[in-house]
Design a protein around this nucleic acid. Structure first.
Lengths: 193, 193
DNA sequence: GAAGATTCTTAATTTATCTTAAGATTTTTT
DNA sequence: AAAAAATCTTAAGATAAATTAAGAATCTTC
């Protein structure tokens, strides 16, 4: 099990000492996930925080009509979890699906709570991580209530340079909140000028 | 200065001991804010986290066309700040305006950082606070990309029972991302069935 | 209590986006 | 390499939402 990518990630926020690294490593599980495999499905409890070492995931909801709506993507170096289900222990309404063959490191709830309590550095690191994620999500909300579909698409390309040529336009459309057909139209209009 | 509302708020997450309360109190400032007064304007640095003891605020952005878009409301018992500007020390693009005469408790960045470092309980409390805010914001994003304007309006009424009969429909329209005229049409249709 | 400002409603017109369906292209699986 | 599945494009018609404008209702201020 190679936890170096996660240690590198943490070191952007706060370096860990030997004991913290050791306690962390004992509580991590490495998994290899195939394309189209789920690590969370509607009705499940979300029991882990997942760090993506390699690969790509999407978290989405299926509405009453059966349409999928992408709430979040995660690529190497990112986290993915249904935090609400994780903490409240209520069944998730979300799916988390691998979009590529992936390698992840997972930490279970009781283990994370242990780390929080034993080493306050983890409270610190995760506070900052969630703050950053929150700020990014606020920008997305502002976009959603103020920008046109075309602006949201162009912004997606700018904000997700690792992703836009790696996933289908269907997935992008679902993320920015338009139909694939309309995204196709937007792309044609952008190209033709 | 009455900090009891803030202590009550914190006690939902973790009770503070005497030293923590004392250190906290020394670093809080109470302010009385008049209706329509700003505690943050575009171009300012956001230098404080603001806890609302009494009253009501909105945080919004003004787009290129001069239209306002409400990103967040905060009433008594809630927090409001431009966290991105606060941490990165970059000028804010947002305004925070009192919608009623209000009383707030503010804590400056250096004081909050001191508390984080001196008492890890504050890292813990704010981690949980931001996690909860993050989960709520995710729900809003899902709504924005999947629900109709009418559904978003009905959901607003459900989620903000303290607010909907206290602020104008213009503000609600700006929050859910429609024009006031269209919200008026939605309301008429809801009433007429 | 009157004047001014803000907010709400209504309706007509225009624009943005969705729906459906079909065919073309690309990717994945066999 | 062929077959199957997924993706992308196009277009027409339907629906959702924005815009504009005018008047009514409500709230604020003097």
């Amino acid at each position: 099990m190679n936890i170096q990518p996660l240690l590198d990630h943490f070191s952007n926020y706060r370096a860990l000492n030997r004991k913290e690294v050791n306690d962390l490593e004992k509580r991590l599980a490495e998994r290899r996930i195939k394309r189209r495999q789920f690590i969370l499905q509607q009705g499940d409890l979300c029991k882990h925080y997942t760090f993506v070492v390699d690969g790509c995931f999407r978290m989405y909801k299926v509405d009453d009509k059966g349409n999928e709506h992408n709430l979040q993507f995660a690529v190497e170096g990112g986290w993915i979890a249904d935090i609400g289900s994780f903490h409240s222990e209520i069944p998730s309404e979300l799916y988390i699906e691998a979009m590529e063959q992936s390698v992840i490191l997972q930490i279970a709830k009781e283990d994370l709570l242990y780390l929080y309590t034993e080493h306050s550095v983890f409270d610190r690191i995760f506070r900052v991580l969630v703050e950053n994620a929150f700020v990014n999500l606020q920008k997305r909300v502002l976009q959603n209530i103020s920008a046109t579909a075309e602006e949201r698409y162009l912004d997606f390309l700018k904000n997700y340079p690792k992703l836009f040529n790696r996933i289908s336009n269907v997935q992008i459309a679902s993320f920015i909140g338009v139909t694939p057909e309309f995204l196709s139209k937007i792309r044609r209009e952008i190209t033709s000028r």
